[in-house]
Each structure stands twice: as C-alpha cells, then as structure tokens.
C-alpha cells in the first residue's frame, strides 16, 4: 500500500449525516441516517491529477471536505503528505489548497488585499508572498482588477481570484471541488490549463467532477464513486478498461444498482 510516491492515502473513510424530518419526507424514506461516504479508500500519487467521478449526491463533496479538514470523518482516516486529517488537521491545512464554489471571498475586499490576508493566515513570508502574488495575478490576468472589490468582479474573474488565493502558500496538494462549475468555456479552459500546469510543476491535484469528458482530458487517475462507495480506482486507462469513460461508468452504476436491488 502506498509506495514512496504516494502523497494522499485514504483508508476506509466514512461519514454519516443525520437526516432531518423534512429531508426524510422529501426523500420518502424512514432512514434517520444517511451514509454519505461509505468506507472509501484510494491513493493518489505525487504529481498527478486525480479525479473523483460520480453523479450528484455520490459523496464527492463530502469526501473532499473531509480531506480539507472542514468536517471530521466518523471512521477511517486520510494521510495528506503523511499527516492525518483526523489527528493533525493543522498540519494538513498548511499543506493543502482547497477550492470550491461554496467557499467565497469577502466581497467587500479587493483580490490584492485578500491575497495578502490569506498569505498572513498561512504564515507566508511577506516578500515571498508579494512575488507570488505578482506571478499569479499576471498568470490569470487579475492585475488590472487587483484593486477592484470582489463584489464588482465577473464570475470568471472571481473564480480566478479564488484560485490564486487558494494557492497563496504554494501548497503541495490542491483539492478542487467541481473546478469548472458555473464557469464559461473560456474561464473553464484557463482553470483546467492551469491545473495541468501545476501538475507539470510537481503539484498534486485532487478534483471532483461529474463531467466525464473533463476527467478524460485532464486526469491521470480517476476513482468512480457511486452511493458513497468507491466502485473502481486507478489510472485512467485501468479504469476505462478499453471503453469510453462514460460507458464504463454506466456499467458500474448498473452493476451496483443491481447488487443493491
């Protein structure tokens, strides 16, 4: 398990949520608990892009949140760069960049200020942060908007600013929930190109998506999650097994649904 080039080791990760009475009624179920993530295990190697694939509600976001230490697993653990998300969340936080459309930038401030603010929270040396800021802002074309309040930025520009700010501390691992959600084609391209660039520079990226074409184009390895469980995980070619990724997913999905029935 996990050779020397393993940077993320997820073992039997589980998370259960309580369903409210309203949710129970909406989903027409008498279950009080919902297993969002069920004994999930997978490994991610250094300098690859790993994609968690699955339909909505499969448990992708919950898994990523646990990796980002925002929520605690009920059981199981994940070692991020050797540090446990359960026992050493502080260490994990300083090694990851986490990005999702749910985490927002404070609209009142400018990208430039927020970059500096998060650099301080991450304890980045000010001189280092300044150089980093210039490089990233230039790369994303934020330069001329750097002193404009986030509230006045376009959705695409906001996303690019969020991306720049989430990697203010030059993390080894970048966790990205639905990287292209809500973005136009151009911005989505900028983001995915940059992820590939980061990978080439030696960073590791874990992303979630329900867009199979994106995974096929971008990911080196993928894991398919159905109903909170890992159906298959491996390199893109291993998982595809000679088929189109989407077809492969439907095979697995039907197989799992059949087992459940």
């Amino acid at each position: 398990m996990g050779g020397t080039d393993t940077i993320l080791q997820v073992t039997d990760l589980s998370k259960t949520f309580k369903l409210s009475a309203k949710q129970q009624r909406l989903e027409n179920t008498s279950e009080k608990l919902r297993r969002a993530v069920d004994r999930l295990s997978f490994t991610v190697r250094k300098s690859e892009i790993y994609g968690l694939l699955g339909p909505n509600g499969a448990g992708k976001t919950t898994t990523l949140r646990m990796l980002a230490t925002l929520i605690r697993p009920d059981s199981g653990d994940a070692l991020v760069d050797g540090y446990s998300v359960v026992h050493e969340p502080q260490q994990v936080r300083s090694r990851i960049g986490f990005l999702t459309s749910e985490l927002k930038l404070e609209e009142f401030f400018t990208p430039s200020y927020l970059f500096d603010f998060f650099a301080r929270l991450h304890n980045v040396d000010p001189a280092l942060a300044a150089a980093h800021k210039q490089r990233l802002f230039e790369r994303f074309g934020i330069g001329e908007f750097s002193e404009v309040k986030v509230a006045s930025l376009s959705t695409g520009m906001k996303q690019k600013a969020s991306l720049a700010i989430s990697i203010v501390h030059d993390p080894a691992i970048i966790i990205f929930d639905e990287p292209t959600n809500g973005l136009d084609v151009l911005t989505a391209r900028v983001v995915t190109d940059y992820l590939a660039e980061l990978r080439d520079a030696g960073k590791t990226i874990v992303l979630s998506t329900h867009i199979f074409s994106l995974a096929e184009r971008l990911c080196d390895s993928v894991g398919i999650i159905v109903g909170g469980q890992m159906s298959v995980s491996g390199t893109l070619d291993e998982v595809r097994a000679g088929k189109d990724l989407e077809d492969r997913f439907f095979d697995l999905y039907q197989q799992q649904a059949g087992e459940a029935a």
Binding site: L70, R93, L121, H122, N123
Partner: peptide, 8 residues
C-alpha cells in the same frame, strides 16, 4: 469556511 481551511 474559506478562513477555516487555513492553518489559522
């Protein structure tokens, strides 16, 4: 939440 994912 954005602040909570930092080591703060």
């Amino acid at each position: 939440a954005t602040i909570l994912v930092t080591p703060l």
